[in-house]
């Protein structure tokens, strides 16, 4: 049986009368990259928001299991606890950095909970206790490590809002990694990137998986990225899962093609013929 870090069971999310996600079940394997794809409006980001606690699902269960066997029911946790306790980090479709703070500060904020403890809930920090000083130095080192990893060490002292778009995307990933997550959720990390930047992003994600052993769940429209790095793909359309499997299996699935082309299943063959596929 596969070792899933995340198991989503019969997840349903309704907004008023609209069913954004309907009885969705899937898993994300440990130390693997799982991609969630589907046409616009398929409900992918809603799934993300449920997993990361920004929405409370109407029904269903979201289970997370750490390497050490600790279990979490994410649908019962408050949003900040999902990051703090369950160690799920996320990025956003439209980048949400702290634009008025430097790249380094962004990464320091990400280590808030660890530093809060180290600063003795501020009191040790206020008197400048040595234990706090060492903890702060360690935090800066971790930030430097990630800045180096994403190639932004030179721009550590620049305001995040001043960085080029592609750098901001990577900085957001680095910031998420500074929370030392077990599961990293990326919402369209390649959106707006050029081909070279996309390739660099793929390398970064692969190395995060290999070096940090972080499991990754991503939403992506850039099929070159998805097909290259995903170990497993879940395809959604109209709030339900329509396919799941290895990249090559999903690519050839007529249901998936139908969803992307926007036609009924039966017509796929005809359309494919027409397009010369």
């Amino acid at each position: 049986m596969s070792d899933d870090i995340l198991k989503v069971d019969h997840l349903t999310m309704r907004f008023g009368g609209i069913v954004a996600v309907n009885d969705l079940s899937f898993g994300a394997e440990r130390r693997q990259i799982t991609a969630l794809i589907g046409p616009n409006g398929a409900g992918k980001t809603t799934v993300f928001n449920c997993v990361t606690g920004f929405y409370k699902p109407t029904s269903g269960a979201i289970r997370l299991a750490h390497d050490n066997g600790a279990q979490f029911r994410l649908e019962t946790l408050k949003d900040f606890r999902i990051s703090k306790l369950a160690k799920v980090a996320r990025t956003f479709q439209n980048i949400r950095l702290f634009p008025g703070m430097t790249a380094l500060e962004n990464l320091m904020v990400a280590q808030h909970n660890a530093l809060m403890l180290a600063s003795g809930l501020t009191f040790l920090g206020l008197i400048g206790a040595p234990s706090w000083r060492t903890a702060e130095k360690r935090a800066i080192d971790l930030a430097k490590f990630w800045l180096d990893r994403i190639g932004l060490l030179d721009r550590a002292d620049d305001a995040a809002g001043n960085l080029p778009y592609g750098d901001q995307r990577r900085l957001e990933i680095a910031r998420a990694m500074c929370t030392e997550p077990a599961l990293l959720c990326l919402d369209e990390p390649a959106a707006g990137l050029n081909a070279r930047e996309s390739a660099a992003l793929s390398d970064l994600l692969l190395s995060i998986r290999a070096d940090q052993g972080t499991s990754i769940l991503l939403i992506e429209h850039d099929m070159s990225v998805v097909m290259e790095i995903s170990d497993r793909i879940v395809v959604m359309d109209y709030g339900v899962k329509i396919a799941e499997g290895k990249p090559k299996d999903v690519r050839d699935d007529p249901k998936v093609i139908a969803a992307y082309l926007g036609v009924e299943d039966e017509e796929v063959a005809a359309v494919e013929q027409e397009l010369g596929l």
């Binding site: 990361t52 606690g53 920004f54 949003d79 900040f80 606890r81 999902i82 990051s83 703090k84 980090a89 996320r90 956003f92 949400r96 950095l97 702290f98 634009p99 008025g100 703070m101 500060e105 320091m108 904020v109 990400a110 280590q111 808030h112 909970n113 530093l115 809060m116 600063s119 501020t122 920090g125 206020l126 910031r175 998420a176 929370t179």
Partner: peptide, 24 residues
């Protein structure tokens, strides 16, 4: 200190703070 940075981060983007595990 982390608390002060969290204040400023809160001013910058509350949603991102929540995603980073900060108890707003």
């Amino acid at each position: 200190l982390p608390i002060g940075r969290a204040w400023e981060a809160l001013r910058e983007d509350e949603v991102a703070c929540r995603a980073l595990g900060i108890n707003i």
